Amino acid sequence: MSFFDNLVNNGKALGNQISSAMGNAANQTGVDAKNSAERTSLEMEIATLNNELDKSYLLIGHKYVEYLIVMEKDPEIDIADVLKLMAPKLKKKKELEDKLAALEKEDKEQHIIAQKLEFEREYQEQKTKLDKALTMDIITEEEYKNKLMVYKNKVDHFDEMRKIKAQYEMGIIDASEMHMKLRAIGVE
């Protein structure tokens, strides 16, 4: 009867882990959708301001040409009125660009946090499996420590691992260097 009790308990634990993972994924999807909608809105607003600013730049160009046609001397044109119209738009554009940059940074940070949580969840799952295997004398203490250490290192050296992979993606290092560095920190 003990075997069946363990089977039921392990099934419940796995169900809870799957449910938790699905909840985290749904939450992250919601955050991603909200950020994506906000990012799209900011990008559209910036594009609108750019169009309005382009019209102002065109107006400055027209004034300049008119001046050159009427006057036959070094150009001195008055564009203060156009600059007055442009100043608030330029300020608003800068604010929106800053907001967009902050949103993109937050989005990137959220993805990094989600990745780290995934490695922590994976570590806990593997630890549970390895604990059970050790208890049942399926693996030795040394095998237990070695296998668990790989997952633990992924959590402990998460930032280093992320930087190494970024170096590879940017073409700073090749695949063999990446694998060598990952092995050096014990995550491969």
Rank of each mutant, 00 (worst) to 15 (best):
P75W: 12
L182Y: 07
L58C: 04
K116C: 08
I172S: 02
L96G: 02
Q167D: 04
V187L: 04
G23S: 12
E120F: 03
G15N: 01
V8C: 01
L42N: 00
M180S: 15
T135P: 04
E66D: 14
K84P: 03
M136K: 13
K12T: 05
A80K: 13
V150Y: 03
L49M: 10
T128C: 07
I69V: 07
H62A: 12
N153W: 04
S56I: 15
E169G: 06
D174M: 03
L130V: 01
L85T: 14
A184S: 09
K116V: 13
K93F: 06
L53E: 03
S41A: 07
L49T: 00
V65H: 09
Y67A: 03
L58G: 05
T128E: 08
E52K: 14
L68Q: 02
Y151N: 01
K147N: 09
D107T: 15
Q110E: 08
L58D: 10
D107N: 15
K152S: 05
A47K: 10
L7V: 13
Y123K: 04
S20G: 09
A166E: 07
D156V: 01
T48G: 06
E95D: 15
K145W: 02
D131I: 00
I112P: 01
M170A: 11
E120V: 08
D54I: 06
E72V: 07
E188R: 04
A37S: 08
I173H: 04
K89P: 00
K92L: 12
D131Q: 02
T29F: 14
E72N: 12
E66Q: 14
G171V: 01
S36E: 13
L117D: 04
M161K: 04
F4L: 15
E142R: 10
A26R: 15
I18K: 13
Y67E: 09
R162Y: 11
K34T: 14
I164E: 00
K165N: 00
H157P: 00
V8K: 06
I112T: 10
E38A: 08
E45P: 01
K116S: 06
H111R: 12
N10M: 09
K108A: 15
Y57L: 09
H157W: 08
M71N: 07
G30S: 03
